[in-house]
Design a protein around this nucleic acid. Structure first.
Lengths: 184, 184
DNA sequence: GTAATGTGTTTAGTATAATGAGCAAGTTAC
DNA sequence: GTAACTTGCTCATTATACTAAACACATTAC
């Protein structure tokens, strides 16, 4: 048996993040304390066992195995500025690190609710733009080209080309994009 | 043992969707055929076993447990270019959408293994740089300022200031950053 | 016909996941 | 001090996940 594993590391992290000892977690999840110890040291475990343990966190299997995604509750910004939000019609733009107007680059954290769109009259402005889908699916139209992108997919284009975004999926789409120069 | 379960149902669906018999899937994933049968009838199974089986589909644990059962294989890059990786010493830079040298902007998907660093002799180059932590923690030093950032946190600075990155945590740190102009 | 392949299931044996008590070390209280 | 409590880990025992081979039933070939 391996000395450690991704699962064990993740469990340890989760347990400690919730301020629980092995015994407390064992009690909460109805598992023996010895089992927790073995698993945290890299032992194998059944899916149902993992489910029971996560139940004491609490957390779902889906959450546990989720490709990690942007955290919520924004905190300190190293850039000393706040994160500002511009939201309308299910589309939300968050200017990461605050408004950097006048700077050469702007990072945005965007979310598109299911069905949300920037509108079919496409946007046009100066600069360049690229982004990467974190979760969900987004249909991107640039000029006459349309592509539906999923997690891990990316786009890049000159902003002078007419472009629009739409979430045709059933789940929220989140992405990170960068554009230059800032247009907001 | 239950006569059926969500996991077994999902596995059956997946196997059939790929036109595989129990024996074929067993062969592909290096598992005994009997085990497949038992599991499909609701038997319990270890996480590593599930991983092995999914390996023959193929599918990741993350995908298997994902809430959405939408299509997979994200591959196409809307920018028509490939994602290239530059990795050394636990630090990995992935140029999202390929090398955009000559363009005004470059999006990077970066990962820092626990303990990994860009080196204490700080980097200096032209342009501006900003990024956002997705998972894990990263200690960012710019000039004389040092800050440890977590998920959702962001940084922004002029690249001409000496800067370095280090993962002091115990888990992998992943972030998305954008810089201009590209320096790779 | 029956021989050869395919399917999913069952079974005996073995490897190992899980239990719960007990261990050693470290805090805190008094 | 030492008594009460915590921490995580170890160990014999029990429960069970997993294997490999055999089973029962199909379909196809000749």
């Amino acid at each position: 048996m391996p000395r450690t594993s991704d699962i064990s590391q993740k469990l340890i992290m989760l347990r400690k993040a919730h301020g629980l000892s092995q015994r407390k977690l064992a009690k909460r999840s109805g598992v023996s304390n010895g089992t927790i110890s073995i698993i945290e040291n890299g032992g194998n475990l059944t899916v149902s066992m993992l489910k029971k343990i996560l139940n004491g966190i609490p957390m779902s299997l889906s959450q546990f195995f989720a490709e990690d995604v942007v955290g919520n509750d924004p905190k300190i910004f190293f850039s000393k500025t706040e994160l500002t939000e511009l939201s309308e019609g299910g589309v939300s733009f968050k200017q990461v690190g605050g408004d950097l107007y006048g700077k050469a680059i702007q990072l945005l954290s965007e979310t598109y609710a299911p069905g949300a769109t920037t509108g079919h009259h496409a946007l046009r402005h100066d600069g360049e733009e690229c982004g990467m889908i974190l979760t969900g699916y987004l249909t991107v139209t640039v000029g006459e080209k349309t592509q539906t992108l999923g997690p891990g997919d990316a786009y890049y284009f000159h902003s002078s080309a007419p472009h629009s975004f739409k979430n045709d999926g059933i789940e929220v789409c989140r992405l990170i994009s960068a554009c230059t120069p800032p247009t907001f």
